[in-house]
């Protein structure tokens, strides 16, 4: 494992912790898109189908359990917890799941490395992860007040994807036959979706003003 991959995973972990901190400690999910969180739960459920049958390393198994567990508990908190659900901005979080899930499923059925259930589901999870942030970005744009933790959460998620690209570049030059077009193209698209957010995030940081995305 190289430093970019580890930094990427740690940034991903940090994003989840920031979100759990907001939800668990402050008992608020204001500005957080339930749609995006449900899509992430679906991403991990379809990607880690082999968690108990295909062992890679202790590190991988533990991280997979953390991402699965946190994704489902975040969804549970927003839907079921009596205090947290009150802060959920339902009226602005209107992105429809099937606009995202259906095209990803069709694409996975058409473009994959091997036509088996597990590989198609794995490919579906890559396509879905690439666009799962869209409901969250739409919600941020509609929310006039982006609080600090929500801003940090989205920034950490974007940083995680950017670090994974550096990891692929590193692995491409250091490992023989390391080519994964499907992973790379969907990962690149996923990272590009954050470009706009990054721009305004750094602007607000540089000018020391509150983060706000233009309508």
């Amino acid at each position: 494992m190289n430093i970019f991959r580890l930094a990427g995973d740690m940034t991903h972990l940090a994003s989840v912790l920031v979100l759990l901190l907001k939800i668990h400690t402050i008992k608020s999910c204001a500005g957080i898109s339930l749609k995006t969180q449900e899509l992430y739960a679906l991403v991990f459920a379809s990607r880690y189908l082999d968690i108990f049958t295909h062992y890679v390393s202790f590190y991988n198994t533990v991280m997979k359990l953390i991402f699965l567990g946190s994704a489902f508990s975040i969804v549970w908190y927003i839907r079921r917890h009596k205090l947290v659900r009150r802060s959920y901005d339902k009226d602005h979080d209107t992105f429809r799941h099937y606009f995202i899930v259906l095209p990803c499923l069709i694409l996975a059925l058409l473009i994959h490395e091997k036509f088996t259930f597990r590989v198609v589901m794995w490919t579906f999870s890559l396509y879905l992860e690439a666009v799962a942030i869209l409901p969250q970005l739409v919600l941020l744009q509609r929310t006039r007040n982006i609080d600090n933790l929500t801003g940090q959460y989205v920034f950490l998620l974007g940083a995680y994807r950017a670090l994974y690209i550096l990891n692929w570049v590193y692995r491409y030059f250091t490992e023989p036959h390391y080519v994964h077009w499907i992973t790379w193209i969907s990962g690149l698209i996923q990272t590009l979706l954050y470009a706009d957010f990054f721009y305004y995030y750094f602007q607000s940081w540089k000018n020391n003003v509150k983060l706000e995305l233009p309508a």
Binding site: D50, N60, K114, R118, I182
Partner: peptide
């Protein structure tokens, strides 16, 4: 060619 399931990334 490496099987995608043996992909070691998260």
């Amino acid at each position: 060619k490496e099987h995608p399931q043996s992909h070691d990334e998260l």
